[in-house]
Computed example of a mutant assay.
Amino acid sequence: MKTPDPVKTELQAADALRLLLEEVPAIESLDVHVVAREPDSGVDLIAHVKAFGHQHKLVAEVKSNGQPRYVRSALLSLRDYVERQSDPVTPILIAPYLSAQAQDLCREFDVAYLDLEGNARLAFGTFFVSRQFAKKPVVERRELRSLFKPKSVQVLKVMLREPSRAWRVAELAEVAGVSLGHVSNVRSSLLDREWAQLADDGMYLATPDALLDAWREAYEPPAGQREAFYTPLHGASFEVALRATSAEGAGQIALSSFSAAQWLAPFGRTGTHYFYADKAGVERLQSSLKLTTASKGENVVVTVLDDLGLFRDTVQPAPGVVCTSAVQTYLDLAAAGERGREAAEHLRQERLQWRK
Rank of each mutant, 00 (worst) to 15 (best):
A176K: 03
Q67I: 06
T314F: 03
H182G: 11
T90H: 14
R69Q: 02
Y81D: 04
K136Y: 11
A250S: 14
T231E: 07
S259Q: 04
E23L: 15
L264D: 01
E162A: 12
P266W: 02
W167K: 00
L45D: 06
D104L: 13
E248Y: 00
F124P: 00
L78Y: 01
P25S: 13
D209E: 08
E162K: 12
A206C: 04
F124G: 07
A123K: 10
G249W: 02
H33W: 02
L212T: 00
P25M: 14
A199S: 13
Y276T: 10
W263Q: 10
A173D: 06
L30K: 04
Q353L: 06
T293A: 08
T270I: 13
G235V: 13
G340C: 07
A16V: 00
E298A: 10
C323H: 04
L147Y: 09
Q328A: 02
S86M: 11
I46M: 02
V240K: 14
K296N: 12
D44F: 09
E83A: 08
L212C: 03
A60L: 08
Y219C: 05
K135R: 12
R165D: 05
E108G: 13
D306S: 15
D213R: 01
P4Y: 08
S246M: 10
T324I: 12
L75R: 04
R168F: 11
R165W: 06
F311E: 15
A280Q: 12
Q225M: 07
R355N: 11
V302Y: 08
L305V: 05
N119M: 08
E171F: 06
Q67A: 14
R121L: 09
A102H: 05
T303L: 03
Q103Y: 05
V153N: 07
L211N: 02
Q55C: 07
E338C: 08
V175I: 08
L19W: 15
Q132V: 05
Y204V: 09
A16L: 03
A228D: 02
D87C: 08
F311L: 15
V139L: 07
P88D: 03
G337R: 04
G309T: 06
P96H: 12
I27T: 07
W167N: 02
V178T: 02
E83V: 11
R165A: 04
L114G: 09
D87Y: 06
E194V: 05
L172P: 06
R107W: 06
R72F: 03
V178S: 03
A173S: 10
Q67T: 10
A326Q: 01
V71W: 09
L331T: 01
Y274P: 02
T292D: 05
F52Y: 15
P222Q: 11
R284Q: 08
V34F: 02
H234F: 10
T272M: 00
E227G: 04
S64L: 09
L212K: 01
S29M: 08
L156A: 00
R37P: 02
L105E: 13
P91G: 11
P221H: 11
A13H: 00
P137D: 04
A326F: 14
D332W: 00
E143R: 15
R355D: 08
K50S: 14
L310K: 06
W215K: 10
K136N: 12
A254N: 10
